[in-house]
Structures are given as C-alpha cells and as structure tokens.
Design a protein around this nucleic acid. Structure first.
Lengths: 167, 167
DNA sequence: CCGACTTGCTTCGAATTCGAAGCAGAGGTA
DNA sequence: TACCTCTGCTTCGAATTCGAAGCAAGTCGG
C-alpha cells in the first residue's frame, strides 16, 4: 500500500467535489424533465435507453443491473413497473432457463422517442453549454480511462455471495 | 457554439454516459467504505464533511441542503439521525429566529477524522489512480465552469413555491 | 401598526431503494 | 447419475427519499 494516498491535493479535492456536485445537479434537472415529459424516473429512463441501444432491444436482467449500477432487487422492482406500463416485456431466456430477457415494446420505444429530445436538450444546456467541442472531447478522454479502471476494480470485497462475517 | 441541441455527438454522448457511470461507481464504492469504517451513509458523510470544512463548524439547514443537493425534508431526517448519534447539534440561529444552525460536535469531528483517511484512499484509488496530476488539473478545469453554469441556471421552473400546474 | 408575501424548517404519507434470504436452473466432478 | 457449488432472479422487511402541506418568523408597502 502506498502511503501517498493519505491525503488529496486541493486540485484533486476540487475535482472530486465538482464531479459530485455537477452530477447531482445534472441528475436532478434531468429527473425533473423526465417526470414532466414522460412520467419516468431517471432509472426507468436509463433502462429504456439501454434497451433501445441494443440491436435486439433486449437485455438480461443482470446486464441491465450492471449497466445501470443498480441492485438486483431494485431492478426487479423497476422492471416490474415498466412491464405493468407495457413498456417492456419479460421472457425467459432461450439459452439459460434461469435468465430473464427484458425486451422493449413498441410503446416503450415510442415513449423513449418522445422524451429523448427534451432529455438531450437538458443535458446539452446544462452540461455541455459552457464547454467547447474540444473541451468536451478532453472531458471524454479523461473519463474513459477512469471508467475502465473502475469497471476493472472489484468493489472492495469481491466475494460474491460468500458468507460474510465470521471465519 | 453548436446550435444542435436536438441531438448529441457520439463524443458528447460518451462523455455524458461516462460521467454518470463513473460517479455511480465511485459513489457505490465510497458508500461501502463509509458504512464499514464508520457506519455512515454517503449523505451523512457529506454533511459532516461540509460542517468540518466550515471555520465555525456550523451551517444553516438551507445551506447544507443546497450544498449537498438534497431535499429539505430529507435533510431534516438525516440531521435528526446525526443529532441522535451525538455527531451534530441543532440550535436556533441568533440572527434569524426561524433559521436552524447545525454544528459539529467533538464526537462528530472525531468520527470524521476516523473515516476520512479511508475515504480519501478509495477516491484516490478509484478516481485518480488512472490520471496523471496534469490530467486531474484538466479535469478540475473542465468541471469548474460546468458547476458554475449549473449553479447559476435555475432548475427549469424557478418559481420557488408558486403553484405549479395551472395557467 | 396591519396585511400580504416570502423564507426556513418540520411533519406526513407514499414511493423507492437496498441487503438478506430463498428458490430454481446450470456446471463440474467422482 | 448423484452431489456440490455457483449463478440468476424474486420476495421480504427495513431504511431512506421525496413532494406537498403546514407552521412560525421575517420583510415590505400602505
């Protein structure tokens, strides 16, 4: 363990705080827009968007949870809501009998198309407005390696479902 | 400036997605560390940290809520928890009788000092590890204007407590 | 001084979120 | 095949979160 990690530069601290604050504010604004324009929560929108991105319009539950950084149980709940609204469909996976495949319906695709422009507008106006295109490129270039690093780093104690406490 | 607010570049899209994902992963990891080392939620830690930053160790409720981007009612709840734990104290403000001033106690300061090193370590190892110091500086330089812009931009319909719906 | 409006915080009910526990299918080894 | 383990999802209870409504103090115009 390096001991040099015992403190953060003012520069680092600023970057960290700004990152948190920017994301919180952005999320807040986006949430509001989504609620007004399509009665969707941010999580629900993320799920629909991710499904819409897929060529087949479907994903497994686990992949969705990993993609959105969401607990399994919470995902079950939200997908249940989306299914009740007729925006997605759940079906057992052909390969793997325990897997559940979630697929976007026509209605889901429509709703996605309906809320997307407003969503983009909020993100553009809030996140990208103060940045030039080159700066956005820089930002993307800085975030990508961080994202990869985080994805590769196991969340502290990777022991998936081992018993936790005693020896 | 590009006027094309109707769609996002692939570059913009990537930056946006990475921003969300990075923050989610970071928050998740930090949350876990805080829970283990000091039985604090992220929000609670943020509140303590913000109080610790203040020269007087105290803030008004509203300023805390704004600083952490938190609903007022949620803040009341969390400050209540912190007070029950003896980490903070609530007192009416001298100037403004309706204002409540939240102040860090000795125990709060101790706990903060106890969890801070681990927190810093997680942030360093996850967020800053893949970046050089110059890159961190760049990141900070990019985020600062965005933060200022977001702070200055009223959240859609600024009508603070006006009635919402009607004409 | 009075009344209308604004601001600061809390209470309340409803919705969301998580982790632990449980069930069932899949994969490997003897 | 029998058994053991791991993976994928759901159910359950508890904790957190938010927005709407309410109360009290401050501010301004008359």
């Amino acid at each position: 363990m390096s001991d040099a990690t015992s403190s953060l530069d003012p520069v680092q601290l600023g970057a960290y705080f700004d990152l948190i604050e920017v994301t919180s504010l952005l999320r807040h604004a986006v949430e509001q827009q989504l609620r007004e324009s399509g009665d969707l929560s941010y999580v629900q929108f993320q799920l629909l968007a991710r499904l819409g991105d897929s060529p087949t319009g479907s994903h497994r539950m686990t992949d969705l949870a990993d993609g959105v950084v969401y607990s399994r149980s919470g995902l079950t709940y939200q997908v249940g809501l989306l299914e009740k609204e007729g925006l997605v469909v759940r079906a057992p996976s052909p390969d793997d009998e325990r897997s559940v495949t979630v697929t976007l319906t026509g209605a889901g695709r429509e709703l996605l198309a309906k809320v997307l422009p407003g969503h983009v507008e909020v993100v553009s106006g809030l996140l990208f407005a103060p940045l030039s295109h080159d700066e956005v490129r820089s930002l993307a270039g800085l975030l990508a390696p961080v994202r990869d690093h985080m994805r590769a780093t196991p969340p502290r104690s990777a022991a998936s479902r081992r018993r936790k406490g005693g020896a």
